[in-house]
Each structure stands twice: as C-alpha cells, then as structure tokens.
Amino acid sequence: MARTITMEVLRYRPEQDAGPVFQTYEVPFTDDMSVLQGLLHIKDELDETLSFRWSCRMAICGSCGMMINGKPALSCKTFLRDLAPGPVRIEALNHFPIERDLVVVMEDFIDKLERIQPYIIPKEPRTLEQGEYLQTPAQLEKYEQFSSCINCLLCYAACPQYGLNPDFVGPGALALLHRYNADSRDGGAAQRMELVAAEEGVFNCTAVGYCSEVCPKHVDPANAVNQNKTTAAADYFLGFLKPKGSRT
C-alpha cells in the first residue's frame, strides 16, 4: 500500500476568501514523487480548484517556485520522500502579492527585468561580413554562471531586503545585469550604472547571502550584487575627478 503524506496548502480565492487560509490534503506518494507531483495529484484526484504554476517538471522553466516548509524552493526539484513523514507546508512565494492560491503577481519583477537592459549592447558594432564576436573560455567563465538564471524568483522570496523594500532591484535582476556587464562583447556597463548606483540599486543589499543559497541553478546573486557595490563606489568617487557635466 502506498504511503501517504499530509500536505497543508495555502489557499486564497479572492472571490470567496477574506484572506489566505490553509487547506489540508492526504496525498499518497511514492519515492520518485516531487512536491509538484503531489500538487498535481491533488488537482487531478482531490480538488480541481487548486491553482499553481508549473510547466517543465525539470527545473528549467522556473515556474513552480513556492515556499516549502518555509523555504523558497522549486516544487519539481523537491521530493516528498525527503519531507516524510510530514506534514508538508506549501505557501505562495514570500514577498509577492498572491493572485490566487500558489500563484503570485510577478509584474514587479518583469518591470525590473526591463530596467536592467538584459541584452548585449555591443561594445563595437560589427557587420555580418566581419563575422561573429569571438570569446575565449576565460571570458566566457566571467559571466557564464550568471546566465543560468531561470527567473524563478526564489532569490526574491529569500531576500529580506526585498521584503522590506520592494523598490530594491533585487538579487535575480542584478545577477542578470551583471551577466551582461561581465560579457566581453557588451559595452553597456556605463549606461546600466545609473540603476546599479541608484537608491533602488545594489546598496540595499546587506550581504545576507540567502539568495545564493536558495538558487536552484547555482547562480551566485550575492556575489554579483557585491561586485557591483565595488564598481558603483569606484564610479561614485572617480566621478568627482571627471570634468563637470560629463557625470551621468
């Protein structure tokens, strides 16, 4: 007979709930079942009204981030066998408004993603005839880990500073900003500096480091943010040496 585990899932249905409430389900599970599969069992067999985001089931798409026993995690990458005997507490990601059940409103992040100019701004324009931009393995290594971000928002749910001040650009977007700044083909660091050095920028970070701990793709946002504190500080002080009017 299959083992069962108790899953306490945070529900919020704006049309009927005054606020978020927990609902408990008894879910049969096998050793190969993830938390996401537990939720899918609830949706398919027990309660079709439960809402949550998911897509790839293999930690690529970044859709299924949620709080599992109080920690931000991808539900597809967390296994019920590791949480037995339970109960397992599932909540929507911290620091984001809840749209419905486990689905959060992520407009704020999308907005920030646009502001970091997340694309290569060529250092020197090249024509098709000139061919591709060449890069050495050492140059690739400088930014490669930061390019693994899947925008799952676990780092935002982990960041106490984002929780206290949602104006903070935050770990994920700043790690992506650094991914482009650190790319040898990119020349956009100066124009991204305005945001890095702004009151919404890197100096909100107090080097807690939980963002890097929860990242399912081994990105190190804390490192990216703190490298940019140094560049922003250098830019701040060197700015006084530049001729008047040339400061951005």
Binding site: E107, I110, D111, K112, E114, R115, E194, L195, A197, A198, E199, E200, G201, F203, K229, A232, A233, Y236, F237
Partner: peptide
Amino acid sequence: MGDDAMSRPLKRSNAPIFWGL
C-alpha cells in the same frame, strides 16, 4: 506597464561614502 517604471527618475545613492567607511 513598463513605460511608467522605465521613466521613473533614478536618484543616485550616496551610500558609497558610508559603505566605504
């Protein structure tokens, strides 16, 4: 959406002084 946020004026933080010290 985006346009509003993109045009929000950014104020340079003077944190580098305190962060440096």
